[in-house]
Amino acid sequence: MAAIECRALRKDYRRGDEVIHTLMDVDLSIDAGGFVALMGPSGSGKTTLLNLLAGIDRPTAGSIAVDGTEITRLGRGALAAWRSGTVGYVFQLYNLVPVLTAYENVELPLLLHPLTRAERHRRVSEALELVGLAARHSHLPRQLSGGQEQRVAIARAIVTRPRLLLADEPTGDLDRESAAQVMDLLARLNRELGQTIVMVTHDPATALRALRTVHLEKGSIVDATVRAEAAP
């Protein structure tokens, strides 16, 4: 069963009198447990598509169903609740809250869930353990390296156990070694926990870590590659 079904997805922006067509009639299906890389040149609509899948932006037309939920029909409040329970989002620039420690950043999304303090503690500890940063739980973002910050961001994204993990150029701001660590982590989440992942990337080598690569150009899907096995 497809985890994500996009049909005739369109997104237009208006700049003065000019209408910019960022996405044009995109159809896309992603199976549960899939690992998809979205590639394409700047302005091709990769991040816009990712934002629409995350429910943080609204399409001009078309539909998006995630696990059978038609998210384009949800109101603001319902969409926020849906994001909280379904989506984990990893940003290129980590976007940790600067005044919170690694632990508190990872705990943030759990504040929206009816969990006891002890349960929150258990989940945050597990997530930090998974990304290999349990020992850095009390560090503020400025006390961490870029790679460590991104791993904390991944812990924050997975701590609610979302069905869908979306990553916008997760290695775009990292050195080679840190990027490899982050990609190893995402691949492990997909392989061992069956996490559905959609990732935007510019880097062909990073895209090879996914099972499927979708190329966009000028707002349309132009090519898709499916691999039986991801690159190590």
Partner: peptide
Amino acid sequence: RDHAILQTLGFTGG
């Protein structure tokens, strides 16, 4: 930006 991140995590406007 922080508020946008919180909303991405699922915080409602309220």
